[in-house]
Simulated scan of single mutants.
Amino acid sequence: MKEIIRLFPDHFQLLLKKNVNWETVQEIRLRVQHKIEVLDSTKNAFLSEGCLSAADLSYVLNQISQFSLYRFKDQLKDGFITIEGGHRVGLAGKVNTVNDKVDTVKHVSFMNIRVARSTRGHVEPLLPYLYHDGGWASTMIIGPPHSGKTTLLRELAQMIGSNRIYPASKVAVVDERSEIAASLQGIPQLDVGPRTDVMDACPKAEGMMMMIRSMSPEVIVVDEIGGIEDADAVREAAYTGVEVICSIHGDSFESARNRPSTNSLITEKVFDRYIVLGRLTDKNPGATMVLDETGQVIAQMKRRRSDGVARSSNNPVRHYMGGF
């Protein structure tokens, strides 16, 4: 993970090389006057040496922005910057507002580096339940944070957009938060399949309609459906004949049904399948359930502890864009 390590002052680079398991790490959290926190899917730990000073965080921020935060002003409004390798750096501190809207984040005192990886092998057990009659089922993935929702979306885009098991389809990924494809300057840093087109950093509702009009997808993949506008766009896409695969936060089918934004989608049976991901803990990897359009369980399988961690022995194809 040289793209991440090189962001730090020299005295922290050695600490990160020696004390971080780069095969499993999901997040590295930085806070002024505190030690570095490292998280995987089930646990967290603080590195034993060295509190971060304001100067240390300033150093990291300058490396991320190449000493020019202004050119990342639009990204800063969303609270994060995507760097080489597709890793996303979340920022928090003092916010400047203009007309009651966020203009930029300044005096950055907190960072969250989310580690991006291409993955393989998480979705194969689910495929027989998602592919039938020569096509893919519109599917909602339900799970709590760090349960592997985005990993599944990425691997489904890979699978649907390739000929690995089933005939390839045209896939459109609407990646509002740059988490599925982890694009940098418009080019995916993670493998999302050879027949996949990506609309990066675009609001979901608008992006879905843009992709339908311009790219004629057969399947749309979108992360974290939120409010009514997102739900309406999913419904509109489904009515055009495009299959939609999306995710939402929740811990059960009932939690999704109780949300005003998704209740109508479930009632109208917009989705053919639901995948419910159990919460991962250090002692219990939980289970994955597949439900039909009525919410009845049709399959249940035990999860691996790695299912919430985006990791792989295969190195992702990465494009060096320069500027970092």
Rank of each mutant, 00 (worst) to 15 (best):
P194W: 02
G135R: 14
E37A: 09
N163F: 03
R311W: 01
T196F: 06
T240K: 00
N263G: 11
P125H: 04
T139D: 08
L156K: 12
Y131R: 09
K73T: 13
R279S: 00
T42E: 04
Y129C: 12
G323Q: 03
F80A: 04
A205L: 08
K204N: 11
R235Q: 08
A54L: 13
D100A: 14
N263C: 01
P9K: 08
S48C: 01
R305F: 13
I160S: 07
V171A: 07
M140A: 13
S53Y: 09
F67N: 15
P188Y: 00
R120T: 05
P9D: 09
M199D: 07
P9F: 08
I228E: 13
D10K: 14
P316M: 01
S65V: 15
T262H: 05
V276E: 12
T24K: 11
L39P: 01
N163Y: 01
Y320C: 00
K302P: 00
V123I: 15
E155Y: 03
D175K: 02
Q26G: 11
E218H: 13
Y70R: 12
V198S: 02
T262C: 08
D272K: 15
D200K: 01
G278D: 02
E254I: 14
V198Q: 06
S169F: 15
M210D: 13
R31F: 07
I248Y: 04
R88A: 03
L39S: 12
A181T: 01
M159A: 10
I228N: 09
I266P: 04
F46R: 13
N314R: 10
H249P: 10
T139F: 04
N112R: 10
L265Y: 10
K302S: 12
L265M: 11
M211W: 15
D133A: 15
L15H: 02
M140D: 06
S162D: 07
P194H: 03
P125Y: 10
I28P: 04
P260E: 11
S183K: 08
R29E: 10
T151Q: 03
R29L: 12
V20W: 05
Q63P: 06
L127I: 09
T82C: 02
E124F: 04
E49Y: 04
L190S: 10
I165H: 09
I298N: 05
M1E: 05
C246R: 08
I83N: 03
D175V: 04
V234M: 03
R154P: 01
V38R: 02
D56T: 09
P194C: 02
L153W: 10
V222Y: 05
G134H: 13
V192K: 02
L130K: 12
T262I: 08
D223R: 07
I165T: 14
P316Y: 00
E179I: 05
S169A: 14
Y320N: 13
I83Y: 02
P203W: 11
P128C: 05
P188C: 03
R273M: 09
T294Q: 14
D197K: 09
R318S: 00
D272S: 15
I113G: 03
G193V: 09
L52I: 07
I5M: 08
H107N: 13
D175E: 06
Q189F: 07
N44G: 08
S147W: 10
S264M: 12
S178K: 01
G161W: 09
T24D: 05
Y59C: 14
G85E: 02
G93V: 04
